[in-house]
Amino acid sequence: MTRTAHQDLHSEQGALRGEHPGRSRNPVIKVADLAWLEFEKPDLDRAEIFARDFGFSVAARTEHELWLRGTLAGSPCMVIREGRTSRFVGPAFRAAERADLDRLARATGSDVRDLDGTGAPGGGRAVDLLDPSGFPVRVVHCGEDLPALPEQRPLLLNFGADHRRTNATQRPPREPSRIQRLGHVVLETRVFGRALDWYLDTLGMIVSDFLFLDGQRERGPTMAFIRCDRGALAVDHHTLAMHLGPGNGYVHSAYQVTDLDSIAAGGEYLNERGYKRSWGIGRHIQGSQLFDYWRDPDRFMLEHFADGDLFSRDLEPGWAPMSTSGLAQWGPPATRDFLGANPSPARVRDVIQALRGDNELDPARLLGLLKAVNT
Rank of each mutant, 00 (worst) to 15 (best):
M1S: 14
L16G: 10
R17Y: 02
V28L: 07
D33L: 01
D33R: 09
D33V: 04
K41P: 00
P42C: 14
L44W: 11
D45M: 07
D45N: 04
A60S: 15
E65M: 00
T71M: 12
T71L: 08
V89I: 15
R94E: 14
R103V: 07
G109R: 04
D114V: 00
G122T: 12
V127Y: 03
H141M: 14
C142S: 12
G143W: 07
L146W: 09
R153H: 10
R165Q: 12
R165G: 01
R174I: 06
E175Y: 10
A195F: 01
W198N: 11
L203T: 01
L211Y: 08
L240E: 00
G247E: 13
V251T: 11
H252N: 08
Y255M: 05
Q256E: 15
Q256R: 14
S262R: 03
A264I: 14
G267F: 11
N271M: 04
R277P: 01
G282E: 01
H284E: 07
Q289Y: 10
D296Y: 06
P297L: 02
D298A: 15
E303H: 05
D309M: 14
E316Q: 11
E316N: 08
F338A: 05
F338Y: 10
A346H: 08
R349Y: 02
D350I: 01
D358L: 01
L370D: 00
